[in-house]
Write a protein that binds this DNA or RNA. Structure first.
Lengths: 221, 221
DNA sequence: TTTTGCCTTACGGTTTCCCGTAAAAATACC
DNA sequence: GGTATTTTTACGGGAAACCGTAAGGCAAAA
């Protein structure tokens, strides 16, 4: 089993139970940090002292408080940690449930596993750690069968731009001017309408409001 | 210290650390349930067997799964538990941060304490349990000084209904018929428009899309 | 260069939404 | 019971969004 494991988790209660889970697995002295910056410091120290961590277990969301931080969330921590120590294995333990966001962690950050905070999360955490120890990738249970057959629609940069503008309150009629200024093409009102129409047709949506709600749920915007 | 304590919490990992906290306080065998219905059954059994629980520690949100439940959230559990055992002390342990919701728990359900899942939550949990054991009411740290000035706007049931309908793709013009059928009042298109207009004015929003995005972010819908 | 096909833009008609005003209904108050 | 106040509804003009069609632009192939 792993010997050097670091937990980055701001909730004390969660941190405690992750530690307990690790101890059950035979990790004698799991280390832990309540802030991303602290976690990164520990990782760097581990490298310098010739005892690098083998596994980082981290949350995604870290609440701000009176201690200003460089790294504000788990994704930033993972990126910084991998830069300092490319081979470091990473397991994310978070309440995030949006498939798009979770899949992005695998594709963009190359994480080794994800466990969602939910009913039998401690059990899943155990099996995930064991899988990663065997150099496997652990996919969360609730994402395995979706395989990605639905939701094949890929939102383009352009799509996301215009939906974001709408959700920020910009009027459709004012968007062409904005796009032109930013030199984003296409920029015409007609193209915009066509694009929105296509998306809504694809998902069988009838209103922009519905599209915005969907994108929020999916973590696209 | 308490002898009979029940934990209602669907997240295994959180449940584990609450148990550990209780054991640190000298509660030898804390009981726990992963579902509200199970928790209520245990409370009733406790009364019947002459060993009623002294304290219920419960979450607010319980995720649905394949086991259909009568009680779907912590508030319902608290109400049912208090009906079965009026003197039962209740400590809520949840990630909910909206002041209005938390204050509602004190005023509507008469809870004895609230601890928010956050950085030093295990420590706060300890002091809350000790305070409640001394018949005190425990107010969460982060709510003590905020007099509740900001965010005074309260979304009514009606507001949430119509915003939800919009985010489900219903056309504004079709909503009056829906409201009339459901016997929700007011139901006219004009009232609807006025209401939406007032909300958007309050938040200085210009579009429904913006309102939907906001409500998604705030967890209102 | 010309043709072909695709993407973008322009435009007009229709629908929906927005917003102000005023009537009607419901509620509260005397 | 009658009056005042608030809430709800009705209506109409104007703006924005929706939607289909057609014209223009651009790049790759002939």
């Amino acid at each position: 089993m792993f010997e050097n494991v670091l937990i980055a988790e701001d909730h004390e209660s969660t941190s405690i139970s992750v530690r307990k889970t690790l101890e059950d697995l035979g990790v004698t002295t799991p280390q832990y940090a309540y802030y991303c910056d602290d976690a990164l410091t520990r990782i760097r120290n581990g490298i310098r002292e010739g005892q690098p961590y083998e596994l980082l277990i981290t949350d995604l969301f870290f609440e701000e408080d009176d201690r200003p931080q460089q790294l504000t969330d788990g994704a930033a921590l993972i990126a910084a940690a991998r830069q300092a120590q490319p081979g470091l294995k990473v397991l994310v333990f978070s309440a995030e449930h949006r498939a798009a966001v979770i899949e992005g962690l695998y594709s963009d950050l190359g994480i080794n596993g994800y466990v969602r905070k939910a009913r039998r999360d401690a059990q899943e955490l155990k099996s995930a750690i064991e899988a990663i120890h065997k150099n496997k990738i652990h996919y969360p249970v609730h994402l395995r069968q979706t395989g990605g057959q639905k939701n094949t629609y890929e939102f383009s940069e352009f799509d996301i731009t215009i939906i974001t503008l709408l959700s920020n309150g910009m009027h459709q009629k004012d968007i062409p001017a904005y796009l032109a200024k930013k030199e984003i093409r296409p920029s015409s009102l007609s193209s915009l309408e066509k694009r929105l129409n296509l998306i809504k047709e694809t998902f069988e949506f009838s209103k922009n409001e519905q599209l915005v709600a969907f994108c929020k749920d999916m973590g696209i915007i």
